[in-house]
Design a protein around this nucleic acid. Sequence first.
DNA 1: CTGTTAGCGCCTTCAT
DNA 2: ATGAAGGCGCTAACAG
Lengths: 341, 341
Amino acid sequence: MDFMANEKSKTEHAITIKEVARLAGVSSATISRYLNGKMNRMSKETADKIEKIIQDTGFVANATARQLSTHISQLVAVVAADIDDYFSTEFFKGASSVLEQNGLTAILFDSNSDKQRELTNLKIINHQVFDGLIIQPLINNYPELRGLIRKELRTIILDRDLHTNDWITVETNNKAVSQKTAAYFLRQRFIKCVVISEAVAGTSTREDRLAGIRSIYPESQLIEIDNSRPFMKENEKKVLDIVKADRVAKHKTLFFFLKERLLLAFFPTFLHHNLLSAPDVAITAFSDTTIVEGLLPASKMIKQNPFLMGATAAEILSNQLKNNATEFNTKKNIVISAKLR
Amino acid sequence: MDFMANEKSKTEHAITIKEVARLAGVSSATISRYLNGKMNRMSKETADKIEKIIQDTGFVANATARQLSTHISQLVAVVAADIDDYFSTEFFKGASSVLEQNGLTAILFDSNSDKQRELTNLKIINHQVFDGLIIQPLINNYPELRGLIRKELRTIILDRDLHTNDWITVETNNKAVSQKTAAYFLRQRFIKCVVISEAVAGTSTREDRLAGIRSIYPESQLIEIDNSRPFMKENEKKVLDIVKADRVAKHKTLFFFLKERLLLAFFPTFLHHNLLSAPDVAITAFSDTTIVEGLLPASKMIKQNPFLMGATAAEILSNQLKNNATEFNTKKNIVISAKLR
DNA sequence: CTGTTAGCGCCTTCAT
DNA sequence: ATGAAGGCGCTAACAG
């Protein structure tokens, strides 16, 4: 009994390069060369011998030690604002696929829509284990964020505009596409516009979208949803009151959702009050998934391209990491256009 | 000009503990003690001096070096089958929150519903940088998965049943809750049941769910959706044909979706054919988000608790990591019940 | 209270 | 084609 406990407590140290060397009857330098693919620096026989030993022992090189020695990890941190959003997971998938093609590994951090958590994430990322960073930041001011990311870390900003040239940014044409969409509906004689969004102030994407809409509908009403509490009852009433009033005034009204999730939350209201195919009510939204397409096949929606955005960011980062010192990027601000469909 | 290039090419090595020691006029051991909170092992003055230097220089300890020395990273890898699924992101959030409370950091890997990718992820995770692993595996057989995870790595399996006692498992009562749900609808005189799912074979969750349903509806028809191609036209027809036939036969029919996303895909079909409030058609589904609640307020749905599942897995793992050698877990298979609501 | 020293596991230059 | 040896940045005895 006692001796079993002893067996267990003897921590199982994984096999090292040194041990492999001993078994193969060579020096650890040779094993290292083998691991790094420098086959021309050794005879075929030793290479074969080493391969066999590694197979037999199931040896896996310790990435930590390698990294301490080389100062490179091939790891890229990707920080998403909230992985519950399709946009976030999708841009990660785009980034991940491109990084993989370049021999890099993407690792996802979730800020959980929480600045505190974002901070924690950045702290960890600063501990010099990552070669690069792609971040969709919650923090919306440049100096603050700048202070949280070590200078040496290659960084790309995604989906947010920090108004800086310090980092390359990949974003959507939020303002332009919102404007275009609003103009489209105005041409259809929807002369009123109600915007439904989470808190706008402090989030550049929402600010830009609202600005685009207001350049067409200066008077557009804004309904801001407070995510922190159950919101449907009161807001449902707001919407219905607006519709009723506009019908009395014989106005056609556009409901413009800045986020798909909000449209989904309101969908039942529109459905049960027969507003979906009403000629005097239109609905549009920033909508990235295919769910809404099915529910509202006739409505025009704004589709971003998060996958491409992530892939683009990853492409740039990969290049930076390759051409180490050199910086060829002249464009600091890359725009991936959203489409109205 | 030239000299600027030189300035740049001189790689900016981050400041080290040694440099901080020099500046503070103490040895690096003292800095190390400071970093590890061993304040009682030094005078207040040195501590203050060190703090100031660290502030001024913005020094951040290199986690890689620390890890090489201590063999612990405080990092836990969480591997999700597909982060596009709410279930996956939610269990991650649960795990993440508990791990954080225990001083650990959760890092998310996405297998992207792709076994090849899962394999890549596991390879990276095997390189000895993580203290623990929580995985929702794609690979469904024990020996294969066993071969891909190093023996020394503390591992918890989530959401899948590998029929092994080697790892602790946290899962849903898939079979039981499916059975209960089916029984509920049978009592309502829905004597036919159509199951709609992605490919069932090879995924324990789906197998268990189908088994539960078939224990009540042995004859239940299964419509398997092939995700790889656009599927709605033909499948829509299947559903409508079934409804028509059942109406002729005066059967009430239950449509049982094994995944929320599938229900959403079919929702428009049901909606546009007035099947949502038809007395002879019922719809139920495994549905974790709140989207469906709004769409079908009257329908009973099965709600899992992915957040709690993740939190539970993290709790167990945290304990294992603390009580290093000791293993107190007698229960190898923890079930977090889904509810019919 | 603080310094010295020897690793941790791998990489890399310099010899041979 | 291979080995010896020093170093990456930090930790952890052991001294004093």
